[in-house]
Each structure stands twice: as C-alpha cells, then as structure tokens.
Amino acid sequence: MLLERKDEWVPGSEQRRERAVVSLVVDMGPAQGHGVTVGSKVLAVNGDSVEGMTYAEVLQAIKAAPRPMRVTFARGGGGEEANVGRCLYKTCAGAPRSYKVWKRRYFVIGGAVARPNVLQLYNSKQAFDHVVIAVFQRAPVTQRVKAVKLGSAWWTSPIRAKQYDGAPPLHTFFVKKSGWHFKQMNFASESLPELERLREQILRVCRPAT
C-alpha cells in the first residue's frame, strides 16, 4: 500500500487541509485483504484520530505506532485511476499482421515513479506494484519496464476496429514520433472504453493525427 498527499477544501471555509490518501494497493496484499481501496483516506492510527494533522504528521504517526498497528480508513471509490489500465501492445513497422504478436501490458502514464508525460508499460500490475515499492524503499528495481517520454513531437491515430481470423474483435490505434518513418507503437484492446481511456491520457501530452 502507498499513501500520497491530497489537499481538500474544509466545508464552509476557504481553508484547505492535507489528507493521507491511498494511491496504490498491492494485489493480494494485506491492505487489499482488509478492503482498503485506492482513494481511501486515513482517519485514525491505533484508534487515535489524525484529524487536523498534516500529511507528514500522519506518516510519522504511522511509523511511530506500536505494532501490530490498526489503521482506520474512510473508503474511497476503489476504481483504477484514469492514467492506468490494461492493453495489448506491439512496436513494429505498421499494424501487427497477426493477433499472436500482441503482448498484454499494464500501462501507466506518469504515476508514482515517473514524470506526468512518461508512458510506462509493465508486464502486469504486480510488476508495477513491485517497482513502486522498490523505488520508495530505495531498493534495486528488478522488473523490466518500457518507458517512453511523450511530447508534442508524438502524434496518435484515431481508434479503428480490427479483426483477425480466429481472434476476438479488437479496437486499435497507434502512436508515432515525427521522424519515425517505419516504426510505430501499436495499442489495442477488446474493450473500447479501456482503449479510449488510454488514448485520452496520451492525447494530454501528444497531438492527434491531422
């Protein structure tokens, strides 16, 4: 589990307060087993309220608390954030000619360990979780990740339907950098909303095809 600082307005005033909010829950980890979800807010540590504390003070309270420790949360929405998800991926010249060449990946744009315009492709969400934990623990990163710095020199195609023989129908689009005459990054998904979410995030730092 990973916490991050988020500020929110105090109801009925013009003041803001800091909150310690869950930004990552490791699959099959203890936090997930206890129902903690992304967006959950820390309310108390070992029964002591953290109301009015800064984010740094909440972290210190968690570090100093006797073990075993009990943390009380206000549950968040629980859904994945817009900048992460699952897709099929393949870099090649033009569109992939076979369904078998696509690789399943977990995409993250920005996130906990990269700048907002960096697209990262992990083998799985578990691989991403391990990288985040390693970075914050200052441990060696052993997971493989493809990271691409996007920007105005990159452009993205519209989403199109694609059908391979003997395979489920796909929705696809590609991302290409100016000056790349042959190679392009292809993305696909059986889920149109999932792929639209990925493309919308990429368009925040790239430009559409003209």
Rank of each mutant, 00 (worst) to 15 (best):
S49K: 00
W155V: 03
G12T: 04
E8D: 11
A61S: 09
S40E: 06
G179F: 05
R19N: 14
V148T: 15
V45T: 02
V21P: 06
K176R: 15
E14I: 13
G79T: 13
F174T: 12
L24N: 02
A134S: 15
R207Y: 08
A82H: 09
G78L: 07
L2M: 11
S157Q: 06
S98C: 00
G179V: 13
L43W: 03
D165C: 03
E81R: 13
R197Q: 15
L203S: 10
E196T: 12
V50E: 06
W155S: 14
A95Q: 12
G85Y: 05
E14L: 14
G12S: 09
G79A: 14
L88T: 00
G166F: 07
A64I: 00
D7P: 01
F187N: 00
L43H: 10
K100H: 13
G94A: 11
E194M: 02
E200V: 08
D129N: 08
R160K: 14
F187I: 05
R104I: 01
R207N: 12
A61F: 06
W102L: 00
L192C: 08
F174G: 06
R75N: 04
V108I: 15
Q201L: 06
A56P: 05
V38H: 02
W102I: 00
G77L: 07
G111T: 02
R204S: 13
L170P: 01
T156M: 10
V141D: 00
P66K: 12
K177L: 08
G52Q: 04
K125E: 02
R70I: 05
L121A: 06
R70D: 10
I159L: 10
R97N: 08
Y89C: 00
Y122W: 13
G110F: 02
L43I: 09
G78F: 08
G77A: 09
Q201T: 03
R160C: 09
P168W: 04
T156K: 06
S189I: 02
K176G: 10
G94Q: 06
L43Q: 03
W9H: 11
N123I: 00
P11D: 04
V10I: 15
S49D: 03
T91A: 12
A74K: 12
E200L: 10
G12L: 08
G12K: 03
F182W: 09
G110W: 05
G94S: 05
R16M: 12
A65T: 02
E80V: 14
M53A: 08
V175G: 15
K90C: 07
R207Q: 15
C92G: 07
N117I: 07
Q184S: 14
S152P: 04
V101C: 07
Q15M: 13
F136N: 10
Y164W: 07
M28S: 13
